[in-house]
Computed example of a mutant assay.
Amino acid sequence: MFVVLSDSHGERAVIEDIKKHYEKTASAIFHCGDSELPSDDEIWEGITVVAGNCDYDPGYQEFQLQEVEGKKVLLAHGHLFYVGLGLERYSYFAEEKNADIALFGHIHQPVAQKINDILYLNPGSVAQPRGKYDIKMYAVIEIKGNHYTISYRNLKHEKIADLQFEL
C-alpha cells in the first residue's frame, strides 16, 4: 500500500499529518509537486517528491522513477505534459519509461484510469480542490497482482464514497 498526494501549495501541516498517519504502514509516500516548500525541508525524509510549476527550488527533480511493491512507479507533476488537455503526452513518456503506474498532479482533480495496462492516477489536491469534487483529498493505492484498489481519502483519512475504484 502506498500514498499519493499533490498540490499542497504551502500547507506543510497537511503533508506532516498524512506522513505521520502512514509512515509506519505505507511502503512509499509520493508527492506529485506544487508543495511550494524548500527541497531540503526535513518533511521530505521518507517522501518521494517532484517539482511542480509552482516549485522554484532547483533541488527538485522534474520526474522520478521508483520501484514499489514490484511495480515501476513514475512520478511527475504533469504540467510539462499538458495533462490538463489529456493524458496522451504523459502516456508516451510513461510507456517510454516502462512504467506500471504513472502518478501526476497539476489539475487538482482525481483521476484513476488504465491506458495500455498502465495505471494513471492524480490524487486531487490536499489544499485547493477543483472540479466536481470540492474536497481536499489524497489517494491510497493497494496492489494485488495486476489489479489496483484505489481509495481517495479526505484530510480526516476517511474514504470518499464516490471515489473508490478497482482497476
Results as ranks from 00 to 15, higher is better:
Thr48Asp: 12
Phe104Leu: 09
Val49Pro: 01
Glu158Leu: 04
Val50Cys: 00
Tyr120Phe: 15
Leu167Asp: 00
Met1His: 03
Val140Leu: 13
Gly70Pro: 06
Phe104Glu: 03
Ser151His: 09
Gly52Pro: 02
Ile18Arg: 06
Trp44Tyr: 09
Thr149Ala: 12
Ile118Glu: 01
Asn146Cys: 02
Gly59Asn: 02
Glu158Ser: 02
Ile143Gln: 13
Asn116Lys: 15
Phe93Tyr: 15
Arg130Val: 14
His147Tyr: 10
Lys97Tyr: 13
Asn154Gly: 01
Asp34Glu: 11
Glu166Cys: 07
Ile143Ala: 12
Ile18Met: 05
Gln61Gly: 00
Ser125Pro: 12
Glu88Trp: 09
Glu42His: 07
Lys132Val: 06
Glu69Arg: 01
Ile107Lys: 09
Asn53Lys: 05
Asp117Met: 03
Leu5Ala: 10
Glu69Trp: 00
Cys32Gln: 05
Glu16Trp: 06
Lys72Leu: 08
Gly59Met: 04
Tyr148Ala: 07
Val14Ser: 06
Glu142Val: 00
Trp44Lys: 05
Ile118Leu: 02
Asp34Pro: 12
Val4Phe: 03
Val73Arg: 02
Val49Gly: 00
Leu87Ile: 13
Ala94Trp: 01
Lys19Asp: 04
Glu96Gln: 15
Tyr120Lys: 08
Gly78Lys: 02
Ser6Trp: 00
Glu11Ile: 01
Phe93Lys: 14
Glu11Tyr: 10
Leu85Ile: 15
Phe2Ala: 01
Val111Gln: 10
Ile118Val: 13
Asn122Gly: 06
Leu75Arg: 06
Glu158Tyr: 03
Met137Phe: 03
Asp117Cys: 04
Asn98Asp: 15
Asn122Ala: 10
Ala102His: 07
Ile107Arg: 10
Leu121Thr: 03
Ser151Lys: 12
Pro110Met: 06
Leu75Gln: 06
Lys144Trp: 12
Asp7Phe: 05
Ser39Ala: 13
Lys144Ser: 12
Pro129Lys: 02
Tyr120Met: 12
Leu75Ser: 07
Val140Pro: 05
His21Tyr: 13
Arg153Trp: 09
Val50Pro: 00
Ala139Trp: 07
Phe30Asp: 11
Gln128Lys: 14
Lys132His: 13
Val14Thr: 14
Thr149Pro: 00
His108Gly: 10
Ser27Phe: 09
Tyr82Ile: 02
Tyr82Ala: 15
Ile160Asn: 07
Gly86Tyr: 11
Met1Asp: 00
Gln164Gly: 03
Gly105Leu: 13
Phe2Met: 05
Ser39Glu: 05
Glu96Leu: 15
Leu163Gln: 11
Glu96Phe: 15
Ala102Trp: 10
Tyr138Leu: 10
Cys54Ile: 00
Ser151Leu: 10
Leu37Val: 04
Asn154Arg: 04
Tyr22Thr: 09
Ile135His: 01
His108Met: 07
Lys114His: 04
Tyr90Met: 15
Ala76Val: 15
His157Gly: 04
Ile107Glu: 07
Glu23Ser: 12
Leu80His: 08
Ala94Val: 03
Ile107Asp: 05
Glu45Arg: 10
Gly78Glu: 02
